[in-house]
Design a protein around this nucleic acid. Sequence first.
DNA 1: CATGAATGAGATTTCATTCAT
DNA 2: GATGAATGAAATCTCATTCAT
Lengths: 190, 190, 190, 190
Amino acid sequence: MTEQARRKQIVDAAVAVIAAEGYAKASFGRIAKQAGLSSTGLISYHFANKRELMDEVVRTVLADFTEFVLARTDDVAGPAAQLRAFIAANVEFASERRTHLVAMLEVARAEPGDGPDPVLEADLRGLADLLRAGQRLGEFRDFDADVMAMAIRSARDGLLLKLRTEPDLDLDVYTGELVTLFDLATRRTP
Amino acid sequence: MTEQARRKQIVDAAVAVIAAEGYAKASFGRIAKQAGLSSTGLISYHFANKRELMDEVVRTVLADFTEFVLARTDDVAGPAAQLRAFIAANVEFASERRTHLVAMLEVARAEPGDGPDPVLEADLRGLADLLRAGQRLGEFRDFDADVMAMAIRSARDGLLLKLRTEPDLDLDVYTGELVTLFDLATRRTP
Amino acid sequence: MTEQARRKQIVDAAVAVIAAEGYAKASFGRIAKQAGLSSTGLISYHFANKRELMDEVVRTVLADFTEFVLARTDDVAGPAAQLRAFIAANVEFASERRTHLVAMLEVARAEPGDGPDPVLEADLRGLADLLRAGQRLGEFRDFDADVMAMAIRSARDGLLLKLRTEPDLDLDVYTGELVTLFDLATRRTP
Amino acid sequence: MTEQARRKQIVDAAVAVIAAEGYAKASFGRIAKQAGLSSTGLISYHFANKRELMDEVVRTVLADFTEFVLARTDDVAGPAAQLRAFIAANVEFASERRTHLVAMLEVARAEPGDGPDPVLEADLRGLADLLRAGQRLGEFRDFDADVMAMAIRSARDGLLLKLRTEPDLDLDVYTGELVTLFDLATRRTP
DNA sequence: CATGAATGAGATTTCATTCAT
DNA sequence: GATGAATGAAATCTCATTCAT
């Protein structure tokens, strides 16, 4: 088995365990079992230490997530439409790749680095820029873009929480509700 | 020392440790040290096991939180004003008793019970009812009350996250932003 | 069992294991077995980590050794007689408390601290001073005191090595040989 | 690459690692890295097990050392002169090939075989013979040749220790001191 | 010959919990 | 009630060795 494939296998198992049982219980033992490995030594063989594995979990999911969202917002014209697309993309990712998103957020929370949280940055930076652009164009009203960005991101995390107990949630409805909510909250009132 | 006082001392120490270092690192050893106890045996003496201690952490903070919010929303007239008061109360609690709120949410996340999460319930139940009442009275537009409630709660958690890195945040501004946001998002448009 | 007694028991077991099997094989497991403990956790309970245990081994034996030698050299008059007493004391300690001395030297070699080796210092400092005093008094010839001190100490370590394979060595003979050797090597020739 | 060259490369790397970090930390991993090998498997391919590698380390250095000393003592006439040459050769080897000597002694100490230590034998055998020959010729006084041999060998090990912290030691001085020391200690007094 | 993935044992350390005093 | 020593499980990490390619 190739190095790359094995690392991916381990990262996938880690994602599954973290999403299912939480970061605290994601020991090498459980991850190895989930991956069907014969020993935790194999994880240590492929990752220098636990932090390296967890960093790779974050890196992998974050790249995936970023690409996913960008692909769905890139060619959209106008701030309001972009915001709608952004929210829809987030909801879609949260449902389609729920375990990945949950695992990434768990790791980011449990292992805060020294500097700013890269996951949080990735979530907020582009979004706040989008909002500010909309304000400059006069499409959005004059709110605090950072607060609004955090509210939007947090609403997506709320969906993650709901999906835990209600996996059959109607996502189209949820998307529509959030889109309307933040459309009303951001648009310049006549 | 009375039984009750001792339990409170331990719970307070647990809250402090969890908020400062996270649930994962909140071992009996660290909690005992924080409380100035001479032995972790004392914790085991007063609590059947770790889960019991953590349950009491949740119970204590949740009661405190519920009372705090109720006291600030009870005598307010009208759904819109109640919603504003609710948001303001949440922001206030999140800043004044940040460690308590953080600890409670950490425990709830790390040790999910079998049934529905009581913390989540407490956050959402009353809020959703408030929103539905406003809809019945015609003050609020026709949104999904559960989704809106979750968005409001999640926005408060976003504030908690922001407070971790920006403890000197201007709370009045934050409150104002959130109040306006959800006022626009909920009100019946003319 | 009292803290102090338990620590002593563990240190003694560590000394025995190190002397018998070498520092490299002196794992907590073997030490616990030697001491008749039920678990290595007990060692960790009494010593913060392995280095702490080993430091205590060195500290204990070194204090013992220093006291032993001082008691046998203190009230001796004249450099030549003091040197003879010093050598005799070293040989005696090396045979009576062979395991202690071996263990101390093993640890000192395996875990070199940042600064100068305290064991080496203890061995050489007083001895070199003694030699220099003898030179000032005209009893000793004009050699390099540091080189001579090291040679004397090394000769004692040679005895330790010999004792490993020949435990029934005639110590009186050995002492006599070393005393004569260094007497001739140090005395001012007529 | 030829079998022999590969083995030599590995032995050299082992010597370097052992001298620099001690036997305890001389794992196959570190040795492979030092040698620039891509896998520890290569070491296992060329040596049946770790002991075999270490035995070869000892064998290699010992042959080198023996040849070195013999070359410098062979054509010297007279026991006293031979002793001087022996000491000088030991000091020279200890400084010129310090890592080799240190590594050999480390291995011999850490992995004592069942029978007599071949390293010790090699050090002492010829030396004691030399001393006894001098006694028979009447040039040396009547000491215990084994004790004297051990003292001489030990003095050289003392130099090794000193070189660790004082690599710029003046070796000519050191040689002179030791030569004089043992000249006085061995010669027949008038 | 060489590679590098895999294995399983063993190391130190942390921890919740028990229990005699 | 309180203390603190003791226990044994579990965690991460290192290592020599094996083996398919």
